[in-house]
Design a protein around this nucleic acid. Structure first.
Lengths: 245, 245
DNA sequence: CGTCGCACTTGACCTCGATCAAAGAGAATT
DNA sequence: AATTCTCTTTGATCGAGGTCAAGTGCGACG
């Protein structure tokens, strides 16, 4: 688990995050600001399992997730762990306005990040209310997500938790499929799990054995098919949704 | 559970929220903006148990919590409920930038709110980047809180959950005591629980029986004293902290 | 091709917290 | 003071999910 070093990465011409407008930070910036930004950002690749941010560490830089999935988690002293969030491209990654990080972040899959040093981003945010607005909106979305998961963690059964997790990944990995699902009901979705069983367990507040058993049950009941332990096919999304509690 | 109606409340001279600077929204505003604000705000009192916001309802107004505690919660169709947040004075209450509310809000104790209609606040936010910044910071604090509770919900035992809840209330109700605790270790804290056993259970993802049993255990072990089922005395805060896991 | 390592699955058993049931304990009403 | 709420505590029992222990499948590597 080597720590990420932004100096060991190739210098980007213009950070690709600028092409990503949906949730990324760059849609808010004008041409001059984009140029400034591109001078500071560093495109970085990290392989699955790399620790990107350590909890309680000093905040030195922020990043945009360009590709892959980043896992945010918190740990108790005795090692019990809870995944408290997942970030998909093109989410912004980092805790604005703090001195210390409040969670740790790890690459759940191979990821591509667009790094920007803390002072550079903070200057941009100050100069650009529109950028602060964008980041504010993402924070509110993350807050909604977190609260949604609190309901799952506190009140759902193991079976409902696992179904809810699959549902979350299905809708995030393949938003197109989700959109089409709303038009013409009953569709098939196929996606790769970006998390190991252990990570899923830590996300759902379960053990890996329970996650495995519940996946087996969903398989037996024909709600999902699993290929190579990583690829999931959902023949009928409604059947899955029904199991989310 | 009558719904709140802003037209049935007395017109405030100048909303008292403007005096509250720590986390409230008004510290960001200049004199002219404060005056504008005071024309739109309505000070409202609600008694414990009143529903302030219904989940999925259309957002019509925001509020600042002036006194008391507001409980945010989410519910499954079958009635299972999870409290996903608590708001103490002078927190801002409401989901900015959304059409629908994403949680329901209920007065946990008797509360005093300073209401402001959605359009009025949104105009102010647009005109005043400093105000957006304030609200952004609160959203990030709430996000940190939510993620902290995810760890509690997913990974702590019932005993640790109850201790953590008491710790949360102790530090929020009496920040002064908390501050003094840091200077000279080992202090006594006394506070009233703002939540019923049922609410505590819904907050911790437990049943009221388990909450009751754990409180009894803490009492037996001398970690807390309980007066009238509502007032809690913690003779040694460190002993309590030790039980938070 | 074998075997090593790792992630996942499956089984047997146990425990913590849920459920069901009853009994206090205040506060409000008659 | 007696009655009736509602909230809380306590006890007895049950079961979902955790724990412990094998077993399986698959890719990496000699």
């Amino acid at each position: 688990m080597d720590r990420l070093d932004i100096h060991n990465s190739e210098v980007p011409a213009l950070c690709r995050s600028c092409e990503v407008r949906h949730k990324g930070i760059c849609g808010a910036l004008d041409a001059a600001q984009l140029l400034t930004l591109s001078k500071h950002t560093q495109q970085v690749r990290q392989s699955a399992g790399t620790e990107l941010i350590a909890d309680d560490s000093e905040i030195r830089s922020y990043a945009n997730v360009m590709r892959g999935v980043v896992k945010l988690s918190k740990m108790l002293e005795d090692g019990r762990q809870q995944v408290v969030g997942l970030q998909f491209a093109p989410d912004f990654l980092g805790r604005l306005y703090g001195k210390q990080n409040t969670v740790s972040a790890e690459a759940a899959s191979d990821v591509e990040l667009c790094r920007i040093p803390k002072p550079a981003l903070e200057r941009l945010v100050q100069d650009c209310p529109e950028l602060e607005h964008k980041l504010h909106e993402q924070a509110l979305r993350e807050l909604d997500d977190a609260r949604g998961w609190m309901l799952t963690l506190g009140r759902k059964t193991a079976a409902e938790k696992v179904a809810s997790f699959l549902w979350l990944i299905a809708t995030h990995i393949d938003p197109a499929a989700e959109a089409s699902r709303q038009m013409e009901t009953a569709s098939t979705i196929k996606f790769d799990l970006p998390l190991s069983r252990a990570d899923i367990a830590d996300f759902l507040g379960l053990t890996i054995e329970t996650v495995s058993r519940q996946l087996t049950k969903l398989r037996r009941d024909g709600v999902i098919e699993v290929i190579n332990n990583r690829t999931v096919v959902v023949p009928d999304t409604e059947r899955l949704e029904l199991r989310c509690g």
